[in-house]
Amino acid sequence: MDTATFRTRLSAWLDTHDLTPDPADDSLDAHVAQLDRVRRELWEAGWMRHGWPEAVGGVGGPSVLRAVLGEEVATRQLAEPGLYSMVEVLVPTLISYASPTLAAEVVPRLLGGREQWCQGFSEPGSGSDLASLSTRAVRDADGHGWVITGQKVWTSLAQYATRCVLLARTGPDPGHAGISAFFLDMDSPGVTVRPLRTMHGVDEFAEVFLDEVHVPGDRLLGSVGDGWRLAMDLLPHERSTCFWHRVAHLYTRLDRLIDQREKPEDEAAALGEAYLALHMVRCRSHATQRRLAASGRLGPETSVDKILLATAEQQLFDTARDVLPGSVELTDPAWRTEYLYSRAATIYGGTAEVQRNIVARHLLGLGKE
């Protein structure tokens, strides 16, 4: 099915199937429950299966169909875009690194809204510097499984997650080569999750404590020592493809801002600049979708996507603060929450400084030692 036909048919279906969330409940619990509902109904109707391989319950087709679906979900405000887009980060990883049997078993559960997953990368002493992580996995007594001990932090939705894609050190090498990846069941004995309250008032993140947690041998993703390679394959998705949904959401915020301004001539130049910044990200995201479709892989060039998205998001909410004086600070909790969340745009998924270093070294060939 081509993109235009898919969008037309999807839009018609959404027009006749009410997936609108309850406007009276803006809690994180409600957002996660709504996310489950949206994924489940889209999966059962077949829409969530497009762009995914048949081996994991999909119906095939280009990956851009997933972007179109996410854009429709975000534009109609059916699910929080950041939560919805986690599938674009974790599912490609499971398909690439898990055994075919495991991927076929678990991927439909996530896409079908029966499970939530999380990503256990960052640690208290190694946020953007994954190579310095200290969580350790050692062979268990019979040599078939693993025992993991350590701590993760800033783990999105860990308190709701059934499973976790986790990095741990399995070898003596202090750098990249000693890291492996695991697919951990979050109800395993020894796993403790503690939600973290952020400045925008939502417990979206959590810290995860791992106290001699047993992981079966068949939950190793890839081979021993493949953790860094997995991370380098996963992070470009976290820094690019899922932004299609985020940009669509930000366009709705811009429309709202234009509707709420008191005078039509107020801050016209600033609004125009905010629009151009969003348009630039969307054009870049479109190019990234085409690159993914052509090669099946993404690389360090996605750091450009991340820089553009973070810049545009903060610019939009800075503009809202200027155009609607007092709303962020005093009168509008919705604007205030999103403004505060936008401050993290240059931190999550790798800081802006890290992204610029990647661009300088890997794309421009600068700063090599």
Rank of each mutant, 00 (worst) to 15 (best):
M1V: 15
A4H: 11
W13A: 08
T20H: 08
P21I: 11
D22C: 13
D22S: 13
P23M: 02
A24E: 14
L28R: 08
A30K: 08
R37Q: 13
V38G: 01
L42A: 01
R49G: 04
R49H: 03
H50I: 07
G51I: 01
P53I: 07
E54L: 06
E54M: 05
V56G: 02
V56R: 01
V56D: 00
V59F: 01
G61K: 09
S63K: 04
S63A: 15
G70N: 09
E71M: 08
V73L: 11
E80P: 00
L83N: 10
M86G: 05
M86L: 14
M86Y: 06
V89C: 05
L90H: 03
I95P: 09
Y97V: 03
Y97Q: 07
A98Q: 01
S99I: 00
P100F: 10
V107Q: 01
R109A: 12
R109I: 02
E115R: 15
Q116F: 09
W117Q: 00
P124Y: 13
S132K: 14
S132V: 05
V147P: 11
K152F: 08
V153I: 14
L157Q: 06
A158D: 03
A158T: 06
Q159R: 09
Q159D: 05
A161M: 05
A161I: 02
C164P: 03
C164K: 02
A168C: 10
A168H: 07
G171M: 00
P174M: 02
G175L: 06
G175M: 04
I179G: 06
S180L: 08
A181S: 15
F183K: 02
D185H: 14
M186W: 04
V193K: 05
M199P: 05
G201V: 14
D211A: 15
E212D: 14
G217C: 07
G217P: 07
R219T: 07
L220H: 06
V224T: 11
D226A: 13
D226G: 08
L234N: 03
L234G: 01
S240Q: 05
C242V: 10
L250V: 08
L257A: 06
K263D: 15
K263T: 15
E265M: 15
E265R: 15
E267T: 12
A269I: 14
Y275N: 12
A277P: 03
A277I: 09
C283F: 07
R284Y: 04
R284P: 03
Q289I: 02
R290N: 08
A294F: 08
A294V: 11
S295L: 12
G296T: 03
R297A: 14
G299Q: 07
T302V: 10
K306F: 10
I307Q: 05
L309I: 09
T311A: 13
E313P: 03
Q314E: 14
F317M: 06
D318I: 00
T319C: 12
R321E: 10
V323H: 01
L324A: 06
P325T: 09
V328I: 10
L330I: 03
T337M: 07
E338V: 05
E338Q: 12
L340C: 03
R343F: 12
A345H: 02
T346N: 11
I347F: 11
G349Q: 06
G349A: 06
R356C: 08
I358S: 03
R361C: 04
R361M: 07
L363F: 11
G365A: 02
G367A: 13
